[in-house]
Amino acid sequence: MARDAVLTAVALTIFVLELQLPDLIPVPGVKAGLSNIVTLITLYLMGPWDALAVLTARILLGSVFSGNASALIYSLAGSLVAFPVTLLMKKIVTERQVWVASVFAAIAHNAGQMGAAILVTATPSLAVYLPVLTVSGVIAGLFTGLAAQACLPGLSKILRDQ
C-alpha cells in the first residue's frame, strides 16, 4: 500500500510535468503518456491489482491537478481499453519485450479515447484522427515502454515483494 502511494506520487509528478510540455501537433488525444512508465513498472514488479490502483488514482488525481476535469472521461475510456490489452500482452511478450506490450497498450488507449470522444461529441467523423493517433500511440508507447524496461532491473530489488 505504501509502495502504491509512492508510485502514484511519482506517476502524478511525471503527469503534471508532462502537462507543461507544449503540444507537438494540435490533434486531440496526442500525448506522450510518460506517467505510464510508472503504470508498467507497477504492473511488472507488483502485479495487476497494484497497477490498476496506481493507474486509477493517478487518473483521478491528475484530472484534479490539471484542472481539466472534462478530460477525465477520455483518459478513463482509454485506460479501460488499454489495461486489459497490457495484461494480455504481458503474458505473450518476454521481459526484454516490454516495449512491445507498451506499444499495443498505447494504440489501444488512443482507440478507446477516440471511441469515447465519438460517443460524447456524437461526431463519427472524429474517426479521421484514428490513424494519426495510432502513429502517435506507437511512438509514445515505444518510448514509455523502453523507459519502463530500462528501469525494471534496477527497481526490482526495491519494489518486488519485501
Binding site: 503540444d23 494540435p26 490533434v27 486531440p28 484542472g67 478530460a71 460524447v120 461529441t121
Partner: peptide, 24 residues
Amino acid sequence: PDQVCVNAGWLSDSASPIVCLPHR
C-alpha cells in the same frame, strides 16, 4: 484547458475537423 482547438489554426480546405474535446 488544452487549447488544442485554438492551436489547430485555420480550417479552409481539409476534411479533418477542428475539435475542442473539453467543450465538446
